[in-house]
Design a protein around this nucleic acid. Sequence first.
DNA 1: CGGATTTGTGCGGGTTTGTGCAATATTGAT
DNA 2: ATCAATATTGCACAAACCCGCACAAATCCG
Lengths: 248, 248
Amino acid sequence: MLKKERHDFVMRQINLHNRVLTSDLVQLLNVSEDTIRRDLQELSDSNRLFKVHGGALSKSYQSSFDDSSVYAKDAKISIAKKAISLIKDGMVVLTGGGTTIIEVAKLLPENLHATFFTISPFVAIELAKYARIEVILIGGLFSKNSQVTYGGHVINQLSEISADLCLLGTSALHPTDGLTDTDWEINQLKKTMLNFSKRTAILCISEKLDISLRLKVATLENIDYLVTELPADEAILNAYHRKNLQIL
Amino acid sequence: MLKKERHDFVMRQINLHNRVLTSDLVQLLNVSEDTIRRDLQELSDSNRLFKVHGGALSKSYQSSFDDSSVYAKDAKISIAKKAISLIKDGMVVLTGGGTTIIEVAKLLPENLHATFFTISPFVAIELAKYARIEVILIGGLFSKNSQVTYGGHVINQLSEISADLCLLGTSALHPTDGLTDTDWEINQLKKTMLNFSKRTAILCISEKLDISLRLKVATLENIDYLVTELPADEAILNAYHRKNLQIL
DNA sequence: CGGATTTGTGCGGGTTTGTGCAATATTGAT
DNA sequence: ATCAATATTGCACAAACCCGCACAAATCCG
């Protein structure tokens, strides 16, 4: 059998099943392991598949979303990096949705060993790329606006969780009014998420500071960390200092 | 024997078997290797075949190398369109994951009014774009391989659903072995999904027909519709006719 | 017609490619 | 931390390839 034919066979298998095992191919094609490895190596070099220990995966399967149009991406990346410093090995982390949280999911250290609960499919998909992270996607009604699951079913499931840390994006944050939002269901959701986490970090780009919306989610006292893209001693952040609120 | 005759002979072999080996041609035509190589070189120069180390391949065979991001997308679109004809207003539909199902989600009629349960975040995200479709994402452990939620929690939630139609992609389908798969958890999942739906449609590109894998999901008797990209009277589909199985 | 030229083919020898083997290192599951 | 499965590396060797050359048959042309 010609090399090219083997390559084609491998690609066919991959496209069919999204993955191939080196050992399977050895049997199917009746050649040595070395040959298969070299084949996979070459196909990988030419970007036709994604080689992993033990076999290979389909490329399209691993592709990410187009995020070139994310607003204020640099600021969000800087926020994400700070937030990641709060996450330690072995933690159970609960996250909401939103582009800032997705940046967090993209920038985690490769060897982090943790469990993540999330209501955002986008976050789940990003997290699934880490070998050592267990991802639980909390199911329920799927919101067309905020692209997270919500509703009674989600609330029920949250109440069974006990997380070490909750990462939340924000609509608005205000020194006296605290965390506020506009959507009733999302509001309920965030309240519940805070409730069932030991600690809470609010991820908030500076332009959402000092704004107050109609529905109250939590006071500043209920929040443990405030993460912005600004240095912690920036003037605008002064109003947010509370004894239990750490700004970073 | 004249050069032209040899060329014709080579082309005939290629059209017949999709490939030729240099060594075979040497024997068959009783000429030196160099001559054959020169022949192949010339035929390759004039784009009549694809030369590789050890022989040559047919150009059409070569076409299966085209790297569109999703494999066999046209076929999947054609399958999706047929599957969509099964979905009526007011239905409760349960879907699995996979690229074929995602095509379905992309091609639904804009004014369809229905409820979709799905274990695939990708499908949920696509479905969320339709104003009149209610999307429930079933939550649970998120599988890094198949990019769907799975595990006991998912099974539990499925058991509370009663769907009118279940749309399932396939790893393999076989006339006697029925629907089979390789992954134990996914296997359980598919079984449960079938269980809690009144009717089931299997979406299957023809390449996955007549293949049987290790784990059994369902017999053909448990399936109501088989959707492929082929016309329903194609020969390969004959073996799949059962009195309760509608092929489209 | 006869010499020059082109074309097709084969041969020798040096080079590249494809494959397997063995020794060693890495990985990942427990 | 340990161990079996999987990868990597270096090597060997045969098969396939390329290049230049020779030579004969076919072709061209004055």
